[in-house]
Write a protein that binds this DNA or RNA. Structure first.
Length: 426
RNA sequence: GUGAUAGUAGCUCAGUUGGCUAGAGCACCAGAUUGUGGUUCUGGGGGUCGCGGGUUCGAGCCCCGUCUUUCACCCCA
């Protein structure tokens, strides 16, 4: 038999790692619920077309696709937003708005694995559909920060960099950039933090051939605050978008997470479908890729032939998050334990041991016992290795009086107790 | 898709210019121990040195290929 390893870019979740995964996902769920989101899920595979409609045919090389026996082209979901759009679209006229839905799906992408990026991972998604209010954007960003704050990340550890796709577009128009050239500018801005100033200038020179436009473009990185933006927001549209972004920051401030938020014109979120405020959350040391990203996407349903419905939301993957928490020492001790380990002092007492174990389990506490006949010392070792809180000894002298000995393993203290009294206390 | 990096026991790693039957610590199993655990002592199992080919009298070590890891680029929903 050949040894078969785990597939490239996947992880085996041994119990210790599984505990971490559950802890992360439980935190996501609790945060979602306390912020008013309800959970949904979708199939793990969809028609391939659901993804090509949104992202074009290039996406096919970046996802796992297959043809089923009926000749259907399918793909394992690389993201859940298209599924969300499909589900919302199907019930668009009956769902009370705003729809506030969350999910923590398992996703697969056929990319080269590297730090913070695997081929299979979990991603928390929160989306608010049916509201164009900036309050929805604020609540989306707040929810992401709420979770990160709740697990111990301070505003000195992480930062939400926020900008607005619509504001940037309006500014570019005011500067003289035609709409079809905007994507080029977005790409350049996105690259800027990764390259040297000289390399950046060269890239800009290559991409933007008209010198007056290039001159305008080079003003963008200097816009560090919204006050700076004021000077270039000359058009009516730009002023409106700027006012919206100001409002967003004011709301986040009122919600108590202003320290975590910073305007950053470089945040453009790739070339995706974003139409309004956009944000990404990074660790302050900037040694990792983004922990979280999201924004407003008001046109997604139209891709599926649905009506134009406003929407905003974010996604947060488990991979980068776990790396950061490990670096910061914020992962809790999550050793699995059992409540009681029941030990008998002889084979003739085993029936009572078995019954007692099951009585404890019936009352909702975890209990275990040894499969092997062995002396007390071995049994205690076993209890210890299973991280039992208490050992219970079923001994001949005590059992005759319907009593058992209960020992707390951490302190070593033990006492004799009537079985009925013990079970009654559970 | 491009470029680098590494791969020896479950884990972390030694392994001499190529030379006896490939080692250590931890972990695991058992015994010391027939009414009390964590420490200790003794013993044991576990390896096609990632895989395939080549060079050589001889390869864990050198060469080629391949798979996987890690990192960066591309991309990033």
């Amino acid at each position: 038999m050949a040894k078969i390893a785990a597939v490239k870019g996947t992880r085996d979740f041994y119990p210790e790692i599984m505990a971490v995964r559950n802890w992360i996902i439980d935190g996501w769920k609790q945060t979602s619920i306390r912020n008013g989101f309800v959970e949904y899920d979708s199939p793990i595979f969809e028609y391939l077309e659901l993804y090509t409609l949104k992202s074009g045919d290039e996406i096919v090389s970046q996802l796992f696709s297959m043809t089923d026996r009926g000749g259907r082209d399918l793909a394992i979901r690389p993201e859940i937003t298209p599924s969300l759009a499909r589900m919302v679209n199907q019930q668009i006229n009956t769902l009370p708005r705003p729809v506030k839905w969350f999910s923590a799906p398992r996703l697969c992408r056929a990319e080269r694995p590297q730090k913070g990026r695997l081929r299979e991972f979990f991603q928390w998604n929160c989306d608010i559909v049916g509201s164009e209010s900036v309050l929805a954007d604020a609540e989306s960003i707040y929810t992401a920060i709420d979770y990160l704050r709740s697990i111990g990340l301070k505003s000195t550890d992480i930062v939400a960099r926020i900008s607005s796709r619509s504001m940037l577009a309006e500014i570019l128009l005011a500067m003289g950039f035609a709409t079809e050239d905007h994507n080029k500018v977005y790409s350049l801005l996105d690259k800027m933090p990764k390259v040297s100033p000289q390399a950046f200038a060269e890239m800009a020179a290559e991409q933007i051939t008209e010198s007056h436009l290039r001159e305008e473009f080079m003003k963008l990185p200097a816009l560090k605050t919204l006050a700076d933006v004021d000077a270039v927001a000359t058009s009516e549209g730009a002023k409106t978008a700027l006012a919206e972004l100001r409002e967003l920051f004011a709301i986040l401030d009122s919600m108590g997470v202003g320290d975590y938020c910073k305007f950053d014109i470089q945040i453009v979120r790739g070339l995706a479908y974003y139409t309004g405020p956009v944000f990404e959350i990074f660790d302050r040391s900037e040694s990792l890729r983004a922990i979280c990203g999201g924004g407003r996407y008001d046109s997604l349903l139209t891709i599926l032939g649905g009506p134009k419905v406003p929407a905003t939301g974010f996604g947060m993957g488990d991979v980068v998050l776990e790396i950061l928490l490990r670096e910061k020492g914020l992962l809790p001790e999550l050793s699995s334990t059992i409540d009681y380990f029941v030990i008998d002092a002889g084979a003739e007492l085993f029936d009572r041991t078995l019954k007692l174990t099951c009585d404890i389990r019936q009352r909702g506490h975890s209990a275990s016992f040894s499969y092997k006949r062995q002396n007390l010392g071995k049994n205690f070792k076993l209890a210890d290795s299973q991280k039992a809180r208490f050992a219970i000894i079923v001994g001949q002298e005590t059992i005759d009086r319907n009593e058992i000995t209960i020992k707390e393993l951490a302190s070593g203290e033990q006492r004799v107790m009537a079985i009925d009294e013990f079970l009654g206390s559970l």
